[in-house]
Design a binder for these strands. Structure first.
Lengths: 188, 188, 188, 188
DNA sequence: TATGAATGAGGATTCATTCAT
DNA sequence: GATGAATGAATCCTCATTCAT
């Protein structure tokens, strides 16, 4: 993993940039390494210098460009007594740091590549965990039993995770804040 | 379009069966027509007799094996005053008739193939429409303004649509009835 | 060779019509029997009923639709003392009866199919023989020795045979009457 | 465009050599790229490294191996007062530099491939132009009006262009010098 | 005669990968 | 590191031909 940062962008970076764009548009299988090379403006052979197998391109992208922030349990913040604003905060601090292209890759290739699915699973787990923890902090005591809170966290996580896919399907957006508000009412 | 249903399934059906299974497992791009032929136990050439282009296999699968029931507005039923049971009904009458394999294909290939995305979009639209209409019927009058109802319907549709994908990621199930109950509380 | 002439055009005729048009446009090799069938509006199998091998389509076309009139030596007419009008007559009574499409096929496929080349060779021979005989009749006696007459006949035959190909290349026409006049002057 | 001329001929040259021989014998359509590879003793894939589409093999052959010398108007030479020897010279300085195999390809594929037809048309134009110019120089002044000269040039060009095709048909040769002599008499 | 499903060899082309330089 | 020619298996697809009905 050389981290030299010379010139306008070193070859390895250009290769990953190209792969990211192409995998996002056409999918991993439908993208040839030759096309990646052309787009990256590097000779075909060089790709295999950095990534001896094509699949390593995908793995490297996922590992280096899909960052999932793991927040320790105790760092999760909440607005006590206000589950709506609490969930809104969770939405705003979404633990996924990735370009729109990488998000598409993440969701698309998760279906067939285990390493990608693991990443996406971890993301989902993190979102779910944060939502639940935040709700526990916002609503201490008896109000809302544990099971309902679990369902609320799961629902919110599902919406956060898939809202982008949804809006690609229909064009309509599902506003996370509005969903936060809805769920808060259910727990209130 | 032969519809004969003789003996051990005619060739065209066997081809579609094979394609369905393989596309679901490995994805459309990663599945070769030769493999489909082998699995269907037909000669390679016959595939192109029925489906002159590989993509037509996918299109035929989607068109013939992903049925989306369109329910007329007036046929949507509700349990007046009980949004929870109303949404549960919506969940139970999910308008998608498709095998688990076809569901995977539907979600996976939607990302790159327009015709598939259209189908999935239509499904989402139908679920959303039903949920909203059912809620309107369950909660007539002033209770719950229109905007909130819209959000509720959208959230429920998102959960129904993506619960399968979610449970593949984490193993945990998000029970639609529990989500129905949650949303009902928010509107109650 | 069934000669039944029922309906608007029997199947065999329609097949040959289609083959003629397609072979002329794209060449024999580049034309599939399936395309011939589609254009003839007959089922694929029927072609092989009439023409068990694809090549027989070409052979039948040449045999049935490229008619070369063989004129007996004594029937060749001339305008005594006027070789120009004599050659013009030869040009007008060109012994090839074939559609423009068939002419293209004749010239194109002669290069690779012996039976077609034979036909074209026979045509050339006939034209040459007629030109020579006509010139002999037009110029009896000593004027113009035999060798020169031979060359004149050959030149005229070449022009008649290839004028179509020439005009396809450049758009310009080489008027046979003018060439007849030219050659007549040489012999005069 | 590697021009290295090392050892036993580089791969690209061997591929073109093989294609030339095979296209000439069987025609472009009837020659498979696999056969070209076998004859060139290169792996199948290498053909597509140099010529991404099969048609580019034909185009490259025409462009690189069919050279048509364009002679400037003022360079055309004539023997003043002797059109026969003048035309003989034109025949001897035929502007086509190509192997017999390439000549066959040129004539055969002109019928279906525009780029080839263009080349052949250019050749014909050049021959015609030279013949006309040479005759103008050989016969200055009033003798022979322009129209007749045009016909003479056209006739001579036709004979030069198609004499090879003719002799393949009948075995008999049409001697260009004899035709030159004939035409000269017509103009004399 | 007519029909179109069936067959499998062969076609052009793509592709990940290797390797000598 | 860099380069692009080389490799050959695999891919999608075409095709002449057969054959049961």
């Amino acid at each position: 993993m050389p981290v030299t940062q010379n010139g306008p962008a070193d070859a390895r970076t250009r290769i990953l940039d190209a792969a990211e764009a192409l995998f996002a548009t056409s999918g991993y299988d439908a993208t040839s390494t030759a096309l990646v090379a052309r787009r990256a403006e590097v000779p075909k052979g060089l790709i295999f210098h950095y990534f001896p197998q094509k699949i390593e391109l995908l793995v490297a992208l996922i590992e280096e460009r899909v960052l999932i922030e793991v927040m320790p349990e105790e760092a999760v913040e909440a607005v006590p007594g206000d589950p709506a604003r609490t969930l809104s905060r969770v939405a705003r601090r979404f633990p996924l740091h990735a370009s729109p292209a990488m998000r598409r890759i993440l969701f698309r290739e998760a279906d067939t590549h285990t390493s990608v699915r693991d990443r996406l699973g971890r993301l989902n787990g993190e979102v779910f965990r944060r939502a639940r923890r935040a709700l526990e902090l916002a609503l201490p005591g008896a109000r809302g039993d544990a099971a309902r809170l679990e369902v609320a966290a799961g629902t919110f996580a599902a919406v956060l995770l898939y809202q982008e896919n949804l809006s690609q399907l229909t064009g309509e957006r599902l506003d996370p804040d509005a969903v936060a508000d809805l769920i808060a009412r259910a727990l209130g």
